[in-house]
Design a protein around this nucleic acid. Structure first.
Lengths: 335, 335
DNA sequence: CTGAAAGCGCTTACAG
DNA sequence: CTGAAAGCGCTTACAG
């Protein structure tokens, strides 16, 4: 209860109590500038004892920093993406906190920059992480001329935009290659939104694998921009007609619908139809049969993105592109 | 590109350019204090034209505010809870932004206050929203003597702690009452963590309904603190043995496992066993059969919580408890 | 109606 | 090694 009365003690209070100048106190805390070891200890122990904590706001004003990093989270999420974002955020926070930065969260739609703009114009952040990218990305276009450091999680086609991403293209290529090698020759595709860069990468990986294996691609079994469950069901029907061996889902939300549809049609997985997902999520972990998919470390991705951003904020030169690894996880659905 | 050069113009720049004092500029912006209408317009239009935006940090320092509200998100989430948190956050942001506040996000485990503490001690927020409550809540206990306004989403047993919640107890009571009235007499329970206050409320609603209907409760068919899938499966087996008519799941994560288990055991839903969930999520929406559950408006909950917090921050007196509504959604699984 | 000045809580050249 | 002073960009009594 003692603290209740103490009420926000400031650097001036500390200085007065100790009979030194604010300068000295400041130096003791920051460790910068020459200062006697004895004085330093005296200040430090007083501070400890009286629970003094510098006001980051004031420090920020003096140094023209906010000690906040802004996060732009897409609002039009899919349930399935959420664990990814959550883990990513954990990774970001973890590394931000380690240098005494906080996370300012804002959410918005694909083409609505206003939340982002607000955050920037109000001078509330020192740097920004965009959690999703689009082939034509209004957020990036707004941010570029702003001169504020930012990185994207997920790839973009914008030159000079620093990006951190999992290697989706490589991952999909590997997964598809494995399937092709197992003799699963006709792999149909369902899902994905073309305006998301990641969709392009996944498609690229799919094509890469076919090229590497010398197997031609049948454009007739590729169903992109299929999102609503009805359209997914129709796509499944078409793939059944086209005698596909396997349905590769561009993401897990689609995969859930595909599995439901197959169940409804009494098509046994994997006996009559194999299924794989190009994404990674805990949602499909408990499915019966378990689903072959990719595995990414979202938390590590968050850490990496934040680290790169912090370097950028310090004015360092950074790699324009950081690609993180993945694992192909083979399960029952493609056996 | 023009903006690139302009570089952070300040109130002093504006004042000089217009030949007025900073005081005047400040008044024109805030609308406070007497000021000539003409002067006011002159300032305002200059500001517009030159994209001047006051530095919120500096304003904050002068007024001893941060214009941030802190959000404490639990780290040990379940996938199924995520849509709830996401929508809740949207509601919070929406109303925070309307009064020019931002959201500072931090995440932590049930008994780890350090992220919260850090945020508070660094003077980074003017108020806090706890997104989950526990029967013995370390966060609340840390926060109470701090004198910083805060509200919880979800109920707590702590007196004087302002809380905003859906009426889980009433909702569960209604749902169970409906089932009982349909002649579904033996309703088994699976899931829930006793240390979560919401579990207590749901149990309470379950009991209320039985009492109201004059039907005795069989403690043998209540399986709380069942979380892991193996334990859930075992609980399902026991309920099958005990001839339960229906399995009510304390939350949707549990419900998914229950459905999987029933499918594995070839028990038809709803013919051989009814199923209901005490929670609300989009995950079960696409299930076959669709699952009877409750429906809460998480976004509205976020709005309400933020509104209450803002009032608290203005020093107003607020209701200690705000309860929001719900809907009982009957679906195929209990037909 | 308007302005000079002090103040918010810190940092950091500049002297000594 | 230490301190007085100016400054970060705003607000707000207090005069006029």
């Amino acid at each position: 209860m003692e603290q209740e009365n103490e009420k926000k003690i400031t650097i001036t209070d500390v200085a007065e109590a100790l009979g030194v100048s604010k300068t000295t106190v400041s130096r003791a805390i920051s460790g910068k500038g020459r200062i006697g070891e004895e004085t330093r200890q005296r200040v430090l122990s007083y501070i400890q004892e009286h629970h003094y904590k510098p006001n980051v706001l004031a420090k920020g004003l003096a140094k023209l920093k906010t000690y906040n990093i802004g996060i732009m989270l897409p609002e039009d999420y899919t349930v399935v993406d959420l664990p990814f974002f959550q883990n990513c955020l954990l990774g970001i926070e973890e590394t931000a906190v380690s240098v005494d930065y906080d996370i300012l969260l804002t959410m918005g739609r694909e083409n609505d920059c206003s939340p982002l703009k607000r955050m920037v114009e109000n001078h509330k952040v020192d740097g920004i992480i965009l959690m999703r990218t689009y082939t034509r990305d209004a957020h990036i276009e707004y941010l570029k001329p702003q001169g504020l450091p930012f990185v994207t999680i997920g790839s973009s086609h914008y030159p000079e935009v620093v990006q951190v991403d999992n290697d989706h293209r490589g991952a999909c290529k590997d997964l598809v290659s494995v399937l092709l090698m197992k003799g699963i020759g006709r792999i149909g595709l369902i899902g994905g939104i073309e305006s998301h860069v990641v969709t392009q990468n996944r498609l690229g990986g799919y094509l890469d694998a076919h090229e590497a294996a010398g197997i031609p691609v049948d454009p007739g079994i590729i169903h992109v921009n299929v999102e609503k469950s009805i359209m997914i069901e129709r796509a499944v029907e078409k793939l059944l007609e086209s005698k596909a061996d396997c349905i590769a889902c561009l993401d897990d939300a689609v995969c859930i619908h595909v599995l439901n549809k197959l169940r409804k049609e009494q098509i046994a997985v994997p006996e009559k139809m194999k299924v794989a997902s190009f994404y990674d999520s805990s949602i499909l972990a408990s499915n019966l049969p378990s689903v072959t998919s990719l595995s990414f470390d979202a938390r590590e991705l968050g850490r990496a993105a934040c680290k790169v951003l912090l370097e950028l904020m310090e004015g360092k030169k950074v790699e324009p592109r950081t690609l993180l690894g993945y694992e192909v996880v083979l399960k029952e659905s493609t056996q």
